[in-house]
Amino acid sequence: MLLLIFKIIFALLALSAIFTVWNKKQKTLLGPKATFFWIVLWLVITLVVFWPNSTQILAEYVGIGRGVDLVIYISIACLFYLVFKMNIKIEGLKRDLTDVVRKESLKK
């Protein structure tokens, strides 16, 4: 019973997260790639919460012993990728900022 309540709460949370992502897309705060990524991520997480064995099937298919290990490996890879993307974004912003500061310093 407790597990079912947890699943329902999680499903509502995931639904609200997807709704937020879609809203941001409508306001052009998120690009199509990022929208796709976040929606797929929340759908996959929901799938795993409702059918935990699904990770086991996939883990066996790719030759990893336990489903939970596969989830951890994928999560770490995703986190690394996101940190990398964020660093690139920050570098880009730094360059924009540099251009502004430089133009200002050369104005006189």
Partner: peptide, 22 residues
Amino acid sequence: LQHKINLGQGAALETGHEYARS
């Protein structure tokens, strides 16, 4: 030439370059 924000030595050199080009 004054940077309003601390950017680093490379940025300062390029600001000087832009001025020199101009």
